[in-house]
């Protein structure tokens, strides 16, 4: 979610390869300066490439390498097994269940975040007295970190003293084992995650709604179109770039959900919320099975790379929009 924050503001800007203008500039420069540039380039890019090299490029290769071995108790690769780890993983029912759970979680969080965020934005996008107050409240969850969200909601989901079950009791509804029933546990973590994402999503959608030209609605009013018609035929198409943008951002962010799962369910019950990232952590840093965790890391990286790629494509499109 945070990942995207600033790029919203940058979206008008172009992302082209260097054009003819730069060449002009190059000609203006004298030879001495150009020679200087090389040293500066080393100086300016050196630190970044050092950090990226050590903490991004190398670990990816190393993870790939580890995924082709069995690792011993110390995490050292000892027996080369080729693609065996991948085969084991992709034929493992438990892992497939994990992928499925991740899918449900990611799609659930994304869909509900968008629906709720859009709803809040639509409701807040009117000119009545005191609307500022409501807008402020709608953005409030932006200030809440993972741990705090998890703690607030853990308390609400508590089976015996939690508010949700107390309300249920009060209304003579059956109580729910929010975090111990596999299906409800998924519902619970999705709810919490949606709540966490809400403030940011609201803000983005609200900005987008505000920028839809008023004249479009005026024209529709004149032709007597209902407000529902206006929403689906004017508003939605106008904000569709934002829509996709939020979708991709929320997807990537929920793919990486870790803290929430760790605090709320620890992957349980019966692996129902054992999402891909949590699984990697558990396999490696609890069970000590670094080879399997590396294999899972590669699978995760591939999935996220695909989504990020789509994000780039969408961003490029937005720019041209």
């Amino acid at each position: 979610m945070i990942n995207s924050f600033p790029s919203v503001k940058r979206r008008r800007q172009t992302n082209q390869a260097p054009g003819p203008k730069e060449e002009v500039r190059a000609n203006v420069k004298n030879f001495e300066l150009q020679k200087n540039d090389k040293y500066y380039a080393w100086l300016f890019l050196g630190p970044s490439f050092l950090v990226l090299g050590i903490f991004v490029f190398y670990p990816m290769l190393r993870t790939l390498y580890l995924s082709l071995f069995l690792t011993d108790s110390f995490g050292r690769p000892t027996v080369f097994v080729g693609l065996q780890n991948y085969l084991n993983l992709l034929t493992s029912k438990v892992y497939m269940a994990s992928i499925q759970a991740t899918g449900v979680y990611v799609i659930g969080v994304t869909a509900f975040t968008i629906i709720c965020g859009l709803l809040l934005a639509a409701v807040a996008n009117q000119k009545i007295r005191g609307i500022e107050f409501f807008r402020t409240i709608f953005t409030a969850t932006m200030g809440v970190s993972v741990s705090v969200s998890a703690i607030f909601w853990l308390f609400m989901f508590n089976p015996s003293i939690g508010v949700l079950n107390q309300i249920a009791l009060f209304l003579h509804l059956p109580t729910v084992n929010w975090l111990t029933n596999p299906h409800w546990a998924m519902v619970s973590v999705i709810t919490t995650s949606v709540w966490m994402h809400l403030g940011f999503t609201f803000l983005i959608f609200f900005g987008a709604l505000q920028s839809v030209p008023k004249t479009l609605y005026d024209a529709a009013d004149v032709s007597g179109a209902s407000s529902r018609y206006q929403f689906f035929h004017i508003t939605l198409p106008m904000i569709s770039p934002t829509f996709f943008f939020v979708a991709v951002i929320t997807m990537i962010s929920s793919f990486k959900s870790f803290g929430l799962i760790d605090l709320m369910t620890a992957g349980g019950p019966t692996n129902a919320t054992n999402l891909l990232v949590y699984r990697i952590y558990k396999d490696a840093f609890v069970d000590g099975n670094y080879a399997v965790a590396s294999t899972e890391s590669i699978v995760l990286a591939i999935i996220i790379a695909i989504i990020t790629f789509i994000q780039f494509k969408l961003l490029a499109k937005r720019v041209n929009y």
Binding site: L179, T180, T265
Partner: peptide, 9 residues
């Protein structure tokens, strides 16, 4: 009655 698993359970 089933309380599930883990610290919360």
């Amino acid at each position: 009655i089933n309380f599930g698993s883990g610290g919360n359970a």
